[in-house]
Design a protein around this nucleic acid. Structure first.
Lengths: 90, 90
DNA sequence: TCGTAGTTTAGATATTTATCTAAATAGATA
DNA sequence: TATCTATTTAGATAAATATCTAAACTACGA
């Protein structure tokens, strides 16, 4: 997946809130769902977009699927942003 | 303008290419337009979104409108990304 | 003040996206 | 095996978005 999916994924406020929630650590799809007044199907859709963008990983355990932050993609994103900051011209 | 406009603005590949082109320095709307196989109206639309998101500024001179990178918003964006990197938990 | 060059605005259209409900799947346990 | 729980998939709809052409605006120069 290229940067395009990453930016598309970050363009939605719900998805950014999910990422913020995951800073607490791994959470199941149900846990995440409970944080929002949206259907489980909708959250599942958002999670799949975050997963395609490699912003989160999933880990299956028993009946649950746990999601967690994929820090490496944020590192790359950070590099991309840096090129536009002062003192990084050309 | 909050972060939302910033992320929405970055979600489009044409707008990201415009930003990359502006790393060279200020460019007129026409210059920018010449870089893409899109109508001037379409480029104008993208520029207005980048402007609303504060990612670029505009400067009028003579008949021209010059656009340039607004580095301060990239600084803020950089901070936002940092919180998701390793060692910045909770 | 008229014309022209640079740019934006208006209006239309096709595509994408966020959301829902209902149905399907997968895995654990009784 | 039957059932329950957690989650995803399918299908539909409404809203948002990227693009175009044509028209309008703005400011300079003749």
């Amino acid at each position: 997946m290229g940067f395009h999916e990453t930016f598309k994924a970050l363009a939605d406020p719900v998805r950014r809130e999910i990422l913020t929630y995951l800073k607490q650590g791994e959470k199941s799809a149900g846990d995440i769902s409970d944080q929002f007044e949206l259907s489980k199907a909708t959250i599942s859709h958002h999670l799949s977009i975050l997963k395609k963008a490699d912003l989160v990983y999933e880990r299956k355990e028993k009946n649950f699927i746990y999601y967690g932050l994929n820090t490496s993609v944020f590192e790359e994103l950070s590099l991309w942003v840096t090129q536009f900051k002062k003192g990084h011209n050309e």
